[in-house]
């Protein structure tokens, strides 16, 4: 169970949060099909750390972005 750093509330237990997936750079709504395809579907899984979104569901309801190491699960700032 991760201890996730909410920017508002500080470190809280994972069960308070909801995962929001990779921190993608949302294309503009009217961007092309292939832009959206690349951003929404294609993943770079070659790195050890990723940027991702979490949602503090049972807390302040804030959506935020963090960087996490997928092997150690450590959050990096």
């Amino acid at each position: 169970m991760l201890l996730i750093p909410c920017p508002n509330c500080g470190e809280r237990d994972e069960i308070e949060f909801d995962y929001g997936g990779r921190a993608i750079q949302y294309p503009a709504l009217n961007n092309s099909m292939s832009d959206w395809h690349m951003v929404l579907h294609q993943r770079d899984n070659s790195t050890e750390t990723i940027e991702e979104f979490w949602y503090h569901q049972s807390g302040c309801e804030c959506w935020f972005k963090v960087t996490r190491n997928l092997n150690t699960h450590e959050f990096e700032s």
């Binding site: 294309p27 709504l29 009217n30 092309s32 099909m33 959206w36 395809h37």
Partner: peptide, 11 residues
């Protein structure tokens, strides 16, 4: 207009 899903709906 463009809206959520409008791009990929064109697949």
């Amino acid at each position: 207009k463009a809206f959520i899903g409008s791009s990929l709906l064109q697949r």
